[in-house]
Design a protein around this nucleic acid. Structure first.
Lengths: 124, 124
DNA sequence: AGGCCGTCGATAATCTATTATCATATCCCA
DNA sequence: TGGGATATGATAATAGATTATCGACGGCCT
């Protein structure tokens, strides 16, 4: 069965607190503050476990390494800061019902919107 | 200076004919039909050169290896077929002026829309 | 408290994509 | 047409991300 370890707790806590998709390296950094000595292998192991259990959800952004975010959130998109390279959540807004048109014969089943720019922290 | 070789011609021709973003491997396959013996190293070399010269434009899609498309096209987005893993161009349609909202303090400078589904060929 | 077995950290190994190397071939100007 | 600079193809090397290995540690059930 699955055990309750300080490391696993730290990883979950880091992701919950951040409230945004994090890369394994980011999780490692944030997790170290909560569990000294945390190793990258442990981070990868737990990201995998938590994803398989459904608690986490992988987020792929163009040209970026996979991030992970706590699942269960309503449909939303992502924002990538060009300065600090951090990803953020962006609430679905744009009139909810855009119709994405593809050439005839194509069946659109999902879409992904990625915004690029500068985040609040880096703007200052 | 830059020479005119059958290989370089084949690579350009393959990309032009396809009319969609292609991965290096796809360019190699298509290019072999136009220049027998074409090697992957030559493909990478020329994709780089053509990109630096502005003739090609890199296309990054989430979780996918970089594709390349002939540049100079009007603003558009991309469609990725879940069956054959090929990328296609999709004309900008959705009323042109969506406003993408990000949290206050965030500056949105660009956006990317990726559609997922099944292409016309794979639907049949 | 004892002990089993999941977990950890360090690091080696792997994997995929891309670039470098180098001997050979070839384009193109003189 | 001759010859040198550029290009090519096979393959080795590199780079970055992720996974496997393995001895030691430590939750947690009894």
């Amino acid at each position: 069965m699955e055990r309750d370890t300080p490391q696993r707790r730290a990883i979950r806590e880091a992701l919950t607190r951040a409230g945004r998709p994090m890369s394994p390296a980011e999780v490692l950094d944030a997790g170290k503050a909560l569990a000294a000595g945390l190793g990258i292998a442990t981070v990868y192991r737990n990201l995998k476990l938590l994803t398989e259990s459904g608690w986490l959800c992988p987020v792929d952004l163009p040209g970026e390494t996979t991030r992970y975010e706590v699942s269960g959130k309503p449909h939303h998109h992502h924002f990538l800061c060009r300065e600090c390279d951090r990803a953020f959540e962006v609430a679905e807004h744009c009139s909810g019902n855009h119709r994405f048109s593809a050439p005839s014969g194509f069946r659109v089943e999902a879409h992904e919107i990625v915004l690029y720019g500068v985040c609040a922290t880096c703007t200052n």
